[in-house]
């Protein structure tokens, strides 16, 4: 990448203030950043699209990456599945610089996917998309009895929860006892 390109990419965040000065001025090339999820597949996203994510936006402004540096160091989101990250990137690209519509009908209907999307979006701090996703969750909960919600969203009952907690404690206790026994053996 040439030095001039580097210069333009670093000047990109100032674009909204400089653009109105002269309408005939040549269009400033957009800068791009790179992200990857659990599957290590790198996605190229424009800075404008990434503005939706408060987390990435903050990272970009703190790091002050040049385009070359950004390409060499894609932002790693190991806790997000590749297909979910792709969905998020697509959404950000689609809504780049546009006012968000009141409804979004392209959200996944599968609850597992939707759930993962909520977690990812919440982590990436994409406020508008989180609202759409949560609205979709609310629609899926609407009109359902507690039992139905429990069944659909795999929520354990209080009794099941307690039993699982007890078992986990027992297991932890046993593991701790095993570890101390092993440590004592090593000491001998």
């Amino acid at each position: 990448m040439s030095s001039t390109e580097q210069g333009t990419s670093s000047a990109a965040p100032a674009e909204p203030t400089t653009a109105p000065e002269s309408a005939a001025a040549p269009e400033v090339p957009e800068s791009f950043y790179y992200v990857h999820g659990k599957d290590k597949v790198v996605h190229k996203v424009s800075a404008g699209a990434l503005q939706h994510s408060a987390l990435i936006h903050g990272m970009i402004s703190n790091l002050g990456y040049t385009e070359e540096q950004a390409k060499a160091n894609p932002f790693p989101f190991e806790n997000i599945d590749g297909d979910i990250l792709q969905m998020v990137v697509d959404w950000c690209n689609q809504h780049k610089g546009k006012p968000t519509p009141p409804e979004d009908t392209n959200l996944p209907k599968q609850k597992e996917k939707l759930f993962d999307l909520v977690l990812a979006v919440n982590y990436l701090e994409i406020k508008e998309l989180l609202t759409y996703c949560c609205k979709q969750v609310a629609m899926m909960v609407k009109g359902k009895s507690p039992e139905e919600i429990r069944e659909i969203w795999m929520i354990p009952t209080d009794a099941e929860d307690e039993a699982a907690e007890k078992e986990a404690k027992k297991r932890a206790g046993k593991e701790a006892a095993g570890e101390t026994a092993a440590a004592a053996g090593d000491a001998k």
């Binding site: 806790n79 997000i80 599945d81 909520v118 977690l119 949560c134 629609m139």
Partner: peptide, 21 residues
Amino acid sequence: MNPKACLEHLPEPAKRNVLMW
């Protein structure tokens, strides 16, 4: 991500957002 899509494990901002709707 969480392999179990359990509403119980939603983060707090998401829970608050769901309740709003």
